[in-house]
């Protein structure tokens, strides 16, 4: 072996050792367990908090409304479609106040006339002209039982 290579060899070994040492400390613990990523991040994402609780949880307390909703056209909807996510409300009923929408604009997001909506899928109404004397949809309609009219 040429002498210049002999002197460089220990240096090379030191470099390789430093590289391996750095690699050991820089690569996260669970990297490469399932693939080219940090396996622990799967658990981190899986344990994020949820905000939408689901129909069954709402029905635990509000069983009357839930039963009414299930009896009519809006049965495909969950409570949180209109009232918003319920996780805060479950923790604290006073702080987590849910919305009770019923304006023309709100109901119109689904029910206003739009040629892109199929009539067999959704019942549509011209929200600008329909029964204009009353302000909000819920002045006449009960959203939990759609065909039940209020006085």
């Amino acid at each position: 072996m040429p002498p210049q290579l002999k002197t460089l060899l220990p240096l090379l070994v030191v470099f390789i050792c430093l590289f391996l040492l750095a690699r050991h400390f820089l690569i996260p613990e669970s990297f490469g367990k399932y693939g080219h990523y940090r396996a622990n991040s799967l658990d981190e994402i899986a344990t994020l908090p949820t905000h939408y609780v689901g129909k069954a949880v709402c029905a635990d307390c509000h069983d009357e409304e839930a039963a009414k909703l299930a009896s009519d056209l809006h049965k495909g909807l969950t409570c949180e479609v209109c009232h918003g996510p319920g996780s805060l409300h479950i923790e604290d009923q006073e702080k987590g106040i849910l919305v009770k929408p019923g304006s023309r604009e709100f109901c119109g997001t689904c029910h206003s006339l739009n040629p892109a909506r199929r009539t067999e899928v959704i019942h549509q109404i011209d929200i600008k002209t329909h029964n204009i004397e009353r302000v909000n949809c819920i002045d006449c309609h009960n959203p939990h039982a759609v065909w039940e009219m209020k006085e």
Partner: peptide, 18 residues
């Protein structure tokens, strides 16, 4: 993913009215 792992539907599927 956090909902799937808890046995819940993803939020957009949960609220789709149709």
């Amino acid at each position: 993913y956090h909902r799937l792992k808890k046995g819940l539907n993803p939020a957009c599927f949960e609220v789709c009215p149709t």
